[in-house]
Write a protein that binds this DNA or RNA. Sequence first.
RNA 1: GUAGCUUCCUAAUGUGGUACAGGGAUUUAUUCCCUGAGGAAAGUCCGGACUCCGUAGGGUAAGGAACUGCCGAAAGGCAGGUGGGGGUAACCUCACGGACAGGGCAGCAGAGAGUAGACCGCUGAUUUUACCUGGCAUCAAAAGUAGGUGGAAACACCGAAAAGUCAGGAGAAUCAGCAAGGGUGAAACGGUGGGGUAAGAGCCCACCAGCAUAGCUGGUGACAGCUAUGGCUAGGCAACCCCUUCCUGGAGCAAUCCCAAGUAGGAGGGCGUUAAAGGUGACCCGCCUUAGCCCUCGGGUAGGGAGCUGAGAUAAAUGCCACUUAAUACAGAAUCCGGCUUAUUGGGAAGCUACGGUU
RNA 2: GCCCCCGUCGUCUAGCCAGGCCUAGGACACCGGCCUUUCACGCCGGCGACACGGGUUCGAAUCCCGUCGGGGGCA
Length: 119
Amino acid sequence: METISKNSEIKNLLKNGTAVHSSSFIFLFKKNNLNKPRFVFIASKKFSKKAVDRNRAKRLLREAIRQNYKAISNIPVDIALIAKKSILKKKSHQVAKELKQILEKVFGNQNEKSTDFIY
RNA sequence: GUAGCUUCCUAAUGUGGUACAGGGAUUUAUUCCCUGAGGAAAGUCCGGACUCCGUAGGGUAAGGAACUGCCGAAAGGCAGGUGGGGGUAACCUCACGGACAGGGCAGCAGAGAGUAGACCGCUGAUUUUACCUGGCAUCAAAAGUAGGUGGAAACACCGAAAAGUCAGGAGAAUCAGCAAGGGUGAAACGGUGGGGUAAGAGCCCACCAGCAUAGCUGGUGACAGCUAUGGCUAGGCAACCCCUUCCUGGAGCAAUCCCAAGUAGGAGGGCGUUAAAGGUGACCCGCCUUAGCCCUCGGGUAGGGAGCUGAGAUAAAUGCCACUUAAUACAGAAUCCGGCUUAUUGGGAAGCUACGGUU
RNA sequence: GCCCCCGUCGUCUAGCCAGGCCUAGGACACCGGCCUUUCACGCCGGCGACACGGGUUCGAAUCCCGUCGGGGGCA
């Protein structure tokens, strides 16, 4: 999976992306010009003072994406996942399940051809 | 055996899947191999390396350090010394130059809080008292007073008693001496005993504590022990200012250096020359302001690289699911080292202490 | 990551450097009472804090050390 590397692109995504809230994270997405998805995982210092907590939150989100990567591997979209505090109490499979529900809600069935309606 | 003290070690180079980062080999669909968080990586409390700014000498200011020895680049560590505090003990813990250089502080209480002080108290002298005890005297004085009688009144007559003196004691006042005792306080200018004295006091003496000086012994040293002599006693706070000795230039890898789009602007040169742009204005004239285009130059933004690593990223890698086990907690590298401090689980090692039992 | 600053009632603050008068003052808020037909204003009274743990000192909100929490700057 590919991450977004430029600071300006991330700021653009955070400013103009569409947000979907879940209990343990915020899902932000925006169409890009590539033919594959890109990701960014965010856990700020405000989220937790401890570096361990921030690292764990980002790993949980990355693991959730990895488990659901097949479903969105062809969709050209930039995705930001912003951690919420409650994610630290959850197991990895719970987070993956939450992400799966959101992906189905936003992008529909991955076999469906037209994803344009969401934009 | 139970309870405890001290000093340490260890974080599966675990197994099987499946992902991630860096490197290497092979190939250019790839596949394989190696390496990949900590004892605190943390707090950023110290010190150093490194880099830039400064010219770094001297002085001032500011900050820091301060018993001894060893190690160390320094912080700091280890061992020891002296003096406090805690624990039955093993042991733990705190402090460490100077208060005769100077300034400052000490509420309340208390007589007095700094070369201080006299409240109660102790002592002497003088004065005094209708006090007490004892001796002496029973004269004088008190007194012709109190009181009584007579009288209308003036007045006349009768007519006491205590308070005496000396000595001692007691009380009071004044003056002086004292600092032993009481009491206040966190703290009041050595302790005990004897002599001494009007009463007392290092006033004198003995012993003890402590101080200074000298000597000897032990120790590398801080210091300890012993002996002699001296003078009789010296208060607390420098984590208040301060004094003495020593140390410190400032900033920090988001430091710093290199490469370097686009846009705007700067400098130089050329072209252009009364056109153009902007403002005023509903519009025109008019008025005001400024430029335009091209080339070159360096500075420099986004971005990239170096700094940067036998972990070494730059939106930032160690994850997830099972298994075995005592293996969980605290917790995650961003320039690197050395410390300090704080957080913390399970297992293990060595030495030691107290209590109980057995031999 | 590196470097600074600050913690006092519910809130904003005074006191801190220069220790004792601090059982910590003031304003707003809150509670009760008075005033008013009632509310507001006003008056009176009450409740309420030195971030935490050690140390220095006779004595600490104040001085020293260590934790915890909050805020800011630097590309």
